[in-house]
């Protein structure tokens, strides 16, 4: 199944067509494997590629960035907003309170950061997993 190679942390789609299998491999390449880590020496340089099967990849892809976004744990409506764009928050700080199924739930900052966007105002409703507040991404 086509998957991905992580090269320097960036995912590159990887597939193998049957024709590729038949064609003789480029002779100048030297390859070594250590589990999912594949090392390729080509053109006088060594490169590390880390195989990621597609299901894992797409799961992680949708999970990543989750840290930047506080999402609705259930459908509901906003009853209180404690922050505005540009506010600094610390992990665990209450940013919003929502009401759902007659329960009030606090939406807390998933990490320390700066509020980039407040997606819903008081009274607005939303679906489960809807983005409520997005924090500015942290440069890696």
């Amino acid at each position: 199944m086509p998957g991905f190679f992580l090269i320097d942390g960036v995912a590159h789609p990887a597939a193998l067509a049957p024709a590729d299998l038949k064609a003789s491999p480029p002779e100048e390449a030297i390859v070594a494997k250590d589990g999912d880590h594949i090392w390729v020496h080509v053109d006088g340089a060594a490169h590390e590629l880390v195989w990621q099967d597609p299901i894992t990849h797409f799961e992680e892809e949708s999970a990543s960035g989750g840290d930047d976004v506080a999402r609705a744990p259930m459908p509901g409506s906003v009853i209180q907003v404690a922050v505005t764009d540009g506010d600094s928050v610390t992990e665990g700080e209450i940013m919003m309170v929502i009401e759902s199924m007659k329960l009030e739930t606090a939406i807390k900052a998933p990490r320390d950061g700066v509020v980039m966007t407040v997606h819903r105002a008081i009274g607005q409703t939303f679906e489960r997993d809807a983005a409520l507040i997005t924090l500015e991404a942290i440069a890696l």
Binding site: M1, P54, I55, H57, F58, E61, S62
Partner: peptide
């Protein structure tokens, strides 16, 4: 459940396999 269309397709491909 799948988190994206591509994720769903990957799961479907694995099922067909």
């Amino acid at each position: 459940p799948a988190s994206s269309e591509r994720h769903a397709i990957a799961i479907a491909r694995e099922i067909v396999g």
